[in-house]
Amino acid sequence: MATNATGRRKIVVCKDLGATAMLLLTDRPDLEVVRWMEDRRCDRAWLLQNIAGASGVVVCFQDMVINTLSRILTYIRSGPNLRVVSTISVGYEHIDLQVMAEHKIHVGYTPDILTDAVADSTVMLALMASRRTDETSSFVKNNQWPDFNWTPSAFCGPQLSTTPFSPTRTVGFLGFGRIAHAVLRRLAGFGVTHCIYTPRPGAAPQPARDARLQALHGLVSVAPVDLPALARASDVLFVLAPGGAQTLHLVDAAFLRQMKPSGVLVNSGRGAVVDSAALAQALREGWIWGAGLDVLEEEPHVTAMHALVREPRCVVLPHLGSAALETRAEMTRLTARNVLAGVLGEPLPVALDYSTLV
């Protein structure tokens, strides 16, 4: 395995992994670890300056600079040593997979670890959006409660759980992978009766899996449907699809117009799957009841003036689905183990099979 001018393998870390995870790298005398220390996203010029001779790079989803890796490889004219890019995320849209494949650079990422944390926050968003927590908490903070005149309909929203007077509830999933299954497991406790989902284009039907999920969670049915049926039948629609050209604005104005006026949309997947302008119009004109968003297509360039932030029945969170202490700690440790294995020429604990994606 090639080393740099110091005789040690070099790792460039574009995002601080925290003390525990960093020790996996800095405690090794055979490594030179160069860290971006500032409390802002990694600067492109800094990366270009420091990547020469590096065997591994650590990035996060904010570090779009890695999309210029082809330029970076050209920049290292003495022959690049780069063997691995390790990202602190389950998503990999910020990495140029074509360049990775061409130069046989391994990609490490952190799926599975964050499944439960994201599922927790997804259910939380469904409850927050349906029960209008942004509106009502602001009501208290703005000192409006003392003068409030209560009525039976005050602050009401659609109930997530089933009741004797509302005995059925259908949840829909746009994207039905491991996080969706974890969300469904949690929703079973609310008495959800029906689950519908739209499979990936070209995906084979999985009736045995669906029957197993139905029996496991005590549901009336688990079934695949097309997009129009998903929109029409979902009481709560969970968007958990991956990003990319195939899913861009799948939830658009035409889709939203078909949803129930009492419907709630939750997006914990990728922001660009939902057309922000169309969703703002849907909320403003009452096509749907409310929305809970952990991701937006414009993030992180989202201010208080964003149309969705200004909608009272839209809860917007700053992409914090995995922000549980235990989950983030394990994500950083896996990121460090991935980059370490890559520079040592060992199999990565969790590697992306990008050969099937490019």
Results as ranks from 00 to 15, higher is better:
Asp134Gln: 05
Ala215Gln: 08
Val350Thr: 03
Gly290Ile: 05
Gly286His: 06
Gln206Leu: 14
Thr115Met: 11
Arg71Pro: 00
Asp30Glu: 13
Phe61Arg: 08
Leu24Met: 14
Gly108His: 01
Ala282Cys: 09
Gly91Cys: 03
Ala211Ile: 02
Ala329Tyr: 09
Met22Trp: 00
His319Tyr: 04
Met100Ile: 04
Phe255Pro: 05
Met124Val: 14
Arg284Glu: 15
Ile51Pro: 00
Val140Met: 11
Ala154Asn: 00
Pro349Trp: 08
Gly345Thr: 12
Arg8Ala: 10
Val192Phe: 09
Glu93Asp: 14
Asp16Ile: 07
Ala280Glu: 06
Pro347Cys: 12
Ile66Gly: 07
Gly79Gln: 05
Glu297Ile: 10
Gly79Trp: 02
Met64Asn: 13
Gly202Lys: 08
Ala291Asp: 03
Arg83Leu: 08
Phe238Asp: 04
Ser234Val: 03
Ala291Phe: 04
Ser70Leu: 09
Val339Tyr: 00
Cys314Asp: 01
Lys104Glu: 13
Ala245Trp: 01
Ser355His: 13
Leu213Asp: 02
Ala351Val: 00
Ile113Arg: 08
Lys15Arg: 14
Gly286Ala: 10
Ala126Cys: 06
Val107Pro: 01
Glu299Arg: 10
Leu82Asp: 02
Val13Gly: 15
Arg185Met: 14
Pro146Asn: 07
Ala341Glu: 06
Leu114Pro: 11
Gly263Cys: 04
Thr247Ser: 14
Asn143Ala: 15
Val264Ile: 05
Val339Thr: 01
Leu82Glu: 04
Ala341Gly: 05
Gln246Asp: 14
Ile72Val: 10
Pro242Cys: 14
Ala101His: 10
Pro199Ser: 11
Cys195Ala: 13
Val183Glu: 10
Leu213Glu: 01
Arg44Ser: 15
Leu216Arg: 13
Leu82Trp: 03
Ala208Val: 14
Val350Trp: 09
Val295His: 04
Ile51Glu: 14
Gly7Cys: 10
Leu23Pro: 01
Glu330Pro: 04
Met128Glu: 11
Arg270Ser: 02
Ser166Ile: 12
Thr162Asp: 00
Gly342Met: 05
Ile66Glu: 12
Tyr75Pro: 04
Tyr92Trp: 07
Leu114Arg: 09
Glu102His: 05
